[in-house]
């Protein structure tokens, strides 16, 4: 990072309330030495993340969260949601929601596509706030240490989908279900309603993303995201671990069926959220 953790801590102290700082001081993480965990997360940058994401969460997108009592307060779990909006603000709002609604606060480890760690500055900042690259080894190591993962199984095809196809889920990749079964981690479905309208898209370009290894770069119709209202709807945990033995994670049919089940749960929450909301901006 261009600045050390002490600067991040000073910025956080200048902006966050003493109560919030005291709450964040209880944040639990695995210090691998020098204050960072092995993946590069540092609590001072988590606080800075709240400084950055807080105004977006509270004022710009005015997030309404329901069902967050289903987020496990301890132990491994995989949070699975729909992905949309051309830029990953949905992940940022979920990250913030988990931080606010867990006590002691937990940092959800967003599992990002392979290209994200290779993005200069952004990749590093995200890593300091808990993001990890999307490899099975990273996910395994985090689940084994009882961390909370956030996975968008639609991947890049989800976030760049055209406006006319909003709230229609792309087929979920199966990796998260395999991880959940193998590591006995509950899956908590989540619907993000609002993000799909934040940046209507004109088209996508493969050429623009090539230098950074990004599969597709969306060309949005608006320069900045619209101030839509976000609704986060958390569903009851799906205990795949109670239905399947860890060795059944190798069975493609079981993993596929578990994936379809979770996708249906997310789709159900999306429909519930769409019915509940009064308008895109309301």
């Amino acid at each position: 990072m261009p600045f050390p953790p002490a600067v991040a801590a000073a910025l956080s102290q200048a902006v966050l309330s003493p109560e919030e700082l005291a709450r964040l001081a209880d944040l639990h993480y695995h210090d691998a030495g020098h204050g960072y965990d092995a993946f590069g997360m540092h609590p001072s940058f988590v606080s800075l993340g709240e400084v950055i994401a807080g105004p977006l969460y509270h004022r710009y997108f005015r997030v309404l969260s329901s069902g967050h009592e289903h987020i496990p307060q301890y132990g491994p779990a995989i949070l699975v949601a729909n992905h949309s909006g051309n830029i990953p603000l949905d992940g940022m709002m979920m990250w913030m929601d988990v931080l606010l609604h867990t006590s002691p606060p937990r940092v959800v480890r967003a599992v990002a596509d392979h290209f994200v760690p290779s993005l200069p500055f952004v990749g590093t900042l995200f890593a300091r706030a808990g993001m990890v690259g999307g490899s099975r080894g990273n996910a395994r190591a985090l689940l084994e240490t009882g961390e909370l993962l956030m996975i968008f199984p639609e991947g890049t095809p989800g976030i760049v989908k055209p406006f006319r196809e909003r709230y229609q889920l792309r087929p979920f990749r199966v990796g998260f279900a395999e991880l959940a079964i193998r590591h006995s981690a509950p899956v908590v479905p989540c619907a993000v309603v609002g993000a799909e309208e934040q940046m209507p898209q004109i088209t996508t370009s493969r050429r623009l993303g090539k230098p950074f290894g990004i599969p597709e770069v969306p060309i949005p119709a608006v320069p900045i995201p619209l101030p839509v209202r976000y609704h986060l709807l958390w569903g009851e945990p799906i205990r795949l671990d109670q239905e399947f033995r860890p060795d059944q994670a190798d069975d493609p049919e079981i993993v596929r069926a578990a994936t379809v089940r979770v996708q249906a749960a997310v789709q159900g929450l999306i429909e519930k959220g769409l019915k509940k909301r009064k308008g895109v901006f309301a």
Binding site: F39, H114, G133, G137, N138, A141
Partner: peptide, 12 residues
């Protein structure tokens, strides 16, 4: 490389 795990096990 970017798409390999951060934590390097013996089978890396």
């Amino acid at each position: 490389q970017r798409d390999l795990p951060v934590l390097i096990a013996e089978h890396h």
